[in-house]
Design a protein around this nucleic acid. Structure first.
Lengths: 159, 159
DNA sequence: CTAGTTTATTTGACACAGCAACTACTTCCC
DNA sequence: GGGAAGTAGTTGCTGTGTCAAATAAACTAG
């Protein structure tokens, strides 16, 4: 393995600031949603994903992938949401292994009630603090960082 | 309350990319550290904070603040680290309510062993993907976002 | 000096995430 | 057709985080 290149001064200051954001921002979003809508971020994401479908319906595995969560976690989340009557679960007609989760009326109502507060929090914590130019810059940067696994194999020797 | 201003197109794309980073990057760092050093990120942070002190020693409350974690969580983390003999806990001589956590030799050794892999991961997932200009830009942006609570009270009516 | 308050930390109860084992169904292939 | 292999989803176990209550020491005022 290489001599591990330490971070230089600019990188270190950038990293400290980024680490703080990585740590505190999700917590701040989570806590707003929990307090105002009694939903976890993951619950909210699931409701959003379902709401974006025309039929408000998705297979568990697909839902897990779009909400970036594991199947087992999703299974428990949906069980919770089902208990709260925000979604229903039914066997898929074409493949009887699969389960279709469907957003209910009250689930949609819950989402509609929760979304404005969440968006306001995003605005307050992110966009109110950035200039339009920074927003564009952030988009590029975030996109560059957005796929941690992609370059996993690039550590190896060049072919 | 205001009409909740929805996000515009630029903000929405920025938010989607940022949300992904917020979700995946910590997980990728966590999992490298867990796999290669059997440490949680929070454990690592605690070791780092202690190592940065000349005496390798800090009060629990101070440690909780610098690692951005709750006291109760820190208490359990340090209990774990103590069980692994990476830190010791002792009553503070001047204030007998307080507890001083001290990094042990083997705790420092653990940190020294874990750090290069962690830094390499940070480099691989962050700095290898950004231009120097983007690093500077990121610093500004991250600093602007870094204190979610600061403006919490600004929502209320001015006194 | 002593009752009440504030500060520092831990702990019990409960909820949730991750892993691995499990069930149930489908597909592949001879 | 029928068994092996693969896929979809759930669940038991265990570890960890959170909240609130508990403990204990230090201030603060009368």
């Amino acid at each position: 393995m290489d001599e591990p290149e330490w971070l230089n001064a600019e990188e270190l200051t950038a990293w400290k600031a980024l680490a703080e954001v990585l740590f505190l921002l999700p917590a701040a979003l989570e806590s707003q949603l929990q307090r105002d809508a009694d939903l976890a971020m993951a619950d909210y994401m699931v409701l959003v994903m379902l709401s974006e479908r025309d039929d408000h319906c998705m297979r568990m595995s697909e839902l897990a992938a779009s909400a970036s969560t594991s199947q087992s976690r999703l299974s428990r989340i949906v069980a919770r949401l089902e208990a709260a009557e925000f979604v229903t679960r039914e066997m898929a007609p074409d493949d009887r292994r699969a389960v279709l989760a469907t957003l209910t009326e009250s689930g949609l109502a819950k989402l509609v009630a929760a979304a404005p507060g969440h968006v306001a929090q995003v605005r307050r914590l992110v966009f109110d603090r950035l200039t339009p130019a920074q927003v564009l810059s952030l988009t590029d940067i975030a996109r560059a960082l957005a796929h941690p696994d992609d370059h996993a194999a690039c550590d190896g020797p060049p072919r």
